[in-house]
Design a protein around this nucleic acid. Structure first.
Length: 419
RNA sequence: GGAGGGAUCGCAUAGUGGUUUAGUGCGGCCGCCUGCUAAGCGGUUAGAGGGGGAAACCUCUCUCAUGGGUUCGAAUCCCAUUCCCUCCGCCA
């Protein structure tokens, strides 16, 4: 979230950033509540200071004067009622603050939606086919590696079953990506909870605003993670990192769970958009001065996955209107899928600045003895499995119906083609 | 799930109603001393939010797991919650 001090001191800047995103504000109410809060705080703190003073004096008296006791009783009542008022005020203020998206990074192009995203570079050749390239839903069924019907039978629409070498290909991809980031890019491997507390969802910015897209277990009040970004953000929640510990790089594989209620009827064919999918996630906690460069490097790490797999891709810079809630700047990577003839988003890499750090209270101490500052956090897919899976099936299909396995996956698959 | 025990300043501990602005030890930091190191000696040691100030800084309030309550006054008494430990039960 944004700091209330910052909003108080730069209301116009915040308003401008919100309008770049096409967000209605609510800033006036925030400023009003903040002013009221500070007025109440001053009043209650003065009363408290007096009460503290007087109580101390009473402690050292032999005779306790009745009228002083009575006055302090009244003061106590007054403090209590002011406290309640402040409590209500802060709750309201906090609710509003938690729904304000991050500031837009100055380098982000202004635009109203995904049509105005900018292609910043592309890589690889789009393959020409001398036969009709099939979409993955046909390939998957032909090869007996994706079972849509049984997925639906077990769990309903937007679920599928991977079988045999299909399941193995997915596992190979996960292992390949993890190994690459751990061994080549210096990320620390983690295995995380797939279910988190409400507090953790607040920390990453998924709650309170986006409850619609999350699965929630009412019984134990736990939420299924929509991305490993959630538990990764919370890894260092409420911590002050000692000098010298930054930057921290983490990589994790998790399943991700999304209700996709917003995209009902969209992408229903195939495995492009399911309620459950696998993803390898990159995450960084860094010094604020370095986060711009760290974002570029993170995108590079994700691109390398595509390059090593030989998948043609393009990198988009999201315009202000398409930026996610917590992000200040984002690059998407889209790979080409020859069968369905689409660019598929396989990665989204964002610099969240101190937005999540503030929510999750993640700080670092620049030098021994200095005051703590909020870290910057970055997250990026490295990458999302189903879409890479799709791209491999569709781009590596052969006229005889077989699928060539990309070189880098062969050690994990033990075969060079799906026949 | 049942029964007990616990949660205090980075760590370990003391503290059962009023100079507690939470003591002590360890660790950390800064000095001093010292061929070097160690030891020793002295000092220091958190976070958040208000108010004032150009700033350095000054000042107030809160924080002894969390939230309530009792009281003029709570780390200390009461209630609830969370987490941890031990035992029992169940279980990949």
């Amino acid at each position: 979230m944004l700091s209330i001090q910052f909003i108080r001191e730069n209301p116009e800047l915040v308003r401008e950033s919100l309008s770049k995103r096409g967000e209605a504000t609510g800033l006036d109410e925030i400023l009003r509540l903040d002013g009221e809060r500070r007025r109440l705080l001053q009043e209650v703190e003065n009363l408290r200071a007096r009460k503290k003073q007087v109580s101390k004096e009473i402690g050292s008296m032999k005779e306790k004067p009745a009228e002083l006791l009575a006055e302090m009783r009244d003061t106590g009542e007054r403090i209590k009622s002011l406290d309640h008022e402040i409590g209500r005020n802060e709750e309201e203020l906090n609710n509003l603050l938690l729904r304000i998206p991050n500031l837009v990074h100055p380098s982000v192009p202004v635009g109203s939606g995904e049509d105005e995203n900018i292609v910043v570079r592309s890589w690889g050749e789009i393959r020409e086919f001398d036969f009709q390239a099939l979409p993955h839903w046909d390939i998957g069924v032909n090869k007996g590696i994706i079972d849509f019907e049984r997925g639906v039978k077990i769990s309903g629409s937007r679920f599928y079953v991977l079988k045999g070498l299909g399941a193995k290909l997915q596992r190979a991809l996960i292992a390949f990506m993890l190994d690459l980031h751990i061994q080549q890019h210096g990320y620390a491997e983690t295995y995380l909870p797939f279910m988190v507390k409400e507090e953790s969802m607040l920390g990453s910015g998924n709650l309170p605003k986006f409850a619609d897209n999350l699965y929630h277990d009412a019984e134990d009040d736990l939420w299924l993670v929509p991305t490993a970004e959630v538990p990764l953000t919370n890894l260092h929640r409420d911590e002050i990192l000692e000098p010298g510990t930054l930057p921290l790089y983490y990589v994790a594989y998790t399943a991700c769970f999304r209700r996709e209620s917003m995209s009902a009827g969209k992408d229903t064919r195939g495995i492009k958009r399911g309620h459950q999918f696998d993803k390898v996630e990159l995450y960084k906690f860094v010094d604020p001065d370095t986060s711009d460069g760290e974002l570029e490097r993170m995108v590079g790490n994700a691109e390398e996955v595509c390059q090593k797999l030989g998948l043609p891709y393009r990198v988009l810079q999201l315009c202000s209107g398409d930026l996610g809630f917590a992000a200040t700047k984002t690059y998407d990577i889209e790979v080409w899928a020859a069968g369905c003839g689409e660019w598929l988003e396989v990665s989204s890499c964002s610099n969240c600045g101190d937005f999540q750090a503030r929510r999750a209270n993640i700080r670092y101490r620049p030098q021994v003895g200095e005051r703590p500052r909020f870290v910057h956090t970055l997250n990026g897919s490295g990458t999302a499995l189903p879409r890479v899976f799709i791209a491999i099936l569709e781009n590596y299909q052969q006229s005889d119906g077989s699928i060539v396995i990309p070189e880098v996956l062969r050690p994990y698959m033990g075969i060079d083609a799906l026949r």
